[in-house]
Nucleic acid binder design. Structure first.
Lengths: 231, 231
DNA sequence: CAGTGGTCTAGACCACCTT
DNA sequence: AGGTGGTCTAGACCACTGT
């Protein structure tokens, strides 16, 4: 029940903001004033304010003070977990089936993958309870991940393997709705033209480009859920 | 060019992690050791470590020390901005057309909206360059947002209005691919069955449930892009 | 029980911005 | 030019947890 002073200050201020008592633009008391009010050191107040600022609730300006921020967008933290974990969470049996594995020379990877040098191409299907629920096409840069040349990705999906072997620093996701092509529909055991969720991801490690992957889910077999609490 | 000591410590450690020099599970030097190494106070080291821990790069355990975390999922911060801003960013002219506005008594809102009491129902279409690119169905809880009873939402879309008037504390998003129904296709000027991106959002303010919205985008007219840097 | 992270203090100096 | 946030210090005590 007893929270830290930091949390208490943060809670008091965010409550005033969320209740509407301090509408956007309101100037929050100066750090020295708050420190006096709570009878604590300014560093403690400062830490609370820094957390609030990083959460986007307030804006801090030197000499002027701190102000209640005006919200500009709805954000969400989208978790894109391993497909194996997704199936496990639903109590379904998971299976990965690799179809294609090919070492490509420089320039052979498609433009969308963004790999100029040599690459490894992997294709396969993710099954939950023996029903295909995603097809995956992936290209891995051999320059960035030399170790993957020794893998055949029959046992573990490349995503799982990469997650454990290559620390990544930046990722870009693109989410779209597309109609399944004839070839895609056959592998997913659905009718051509079925609405599917397309998830593409480009991954970097520092400045090195690591991998591009495209996963295609039948619309009725997968969705993305994202919860978001500022703070 | 000269960064703060906090940033330098953080950068040194994350570089060692990302380079693979400290693989997952490695114990990071104790805070006292790092403080001695950098010739600074332990509080400075502690702040850097706290930031790294919140970014998910390390795990801290009392008495044991801090360890390089093992990544378990690919996260992404998905920005879901106002559709007006999206169109503006692309240099397109934006227009909102409200079709339906109805005050509903308790129990009349559909189950999916999750509103037990009285509600306001709003439907409309978002246009970019006079081409419909999203239809929107929304229900707003009148208990949580009494002020919206005076709005007719002809000039501003309800999302824009709510963003400026109701501070929210929690949101849940659900993203799916669906085929457009006949009615939806007509309003979007596409063929029935076209793959569309369905974005649903439930929004809370503290414990009060505020609004449910469903937006439907033709797959070829909209996609979601999310960039993510830990840190 | 010993030692780690977690929190806080009272003070200091600086960079920057508004007036 | 003055006052704000931004950073850092040297010390302290506490809570938790692994041995």
């Amino acid at each position: 029940m007893t929270a830290t002073l930091d949390q208490r200050i943060r809670g008091d201020i965010s409550a005033r903001i969320h209740s509407g008592e301090w509408p956007p633009g309101t100037r929050i008391p100066y750090e020295t004033e708050l420190a006096a009010h709570y009878g604590c050191a300014r560093a403690t107040v400062s830490k609370a304010m820094e957390t609030l600022a990083r959460a986007g609730l307030i804006e801090r300006r030197r000499k002027a003070g701190s102000f209640v921020a005006r919200p500009h967008s709805q954000s969400a933290v989208l978790e894109v977990p391993d497909l194996a974990s997704v199936a496990a969470a639903k109590g379904e049996t998971y299976r990965w089936q690799r179809n294609r594995l090919a070492a490509l020379a420089a320039g052979e990877a498609p433009d969308i993958a963004g790999i100029a040098g040599a690459a490894l191409a992997v294709e396969g299907v993710h099954f939950a309870d023996d029903l295909p629920f995603a097809i995956e096409e992936r290209w891995i840069s051999l320059a960035a991940v030399p170790g993957c040349a020794d893998e055949d990705f029959t046992g573990t999906a490349p995503g799982t393997w990469l997650l454990g072997h290559v620390p990544w620093t930046h990722a870009r996701h693109r989410i779209r709705a597309v109609a399944a092509s004839a070839a895609e529909a056959r592998r997913l055991a659905i009718r051509p033209g079925t609405a599917c969720l397309s998830l593409e991801r480009w991954t970097w490690r520092a400045r090195d480009y690591v991998t591009y992957v495209r996963q295609l889910f039948p619309g009725d077999r997968h969705d993305l859920i994202a919860d978001f609490d500022p703070s």
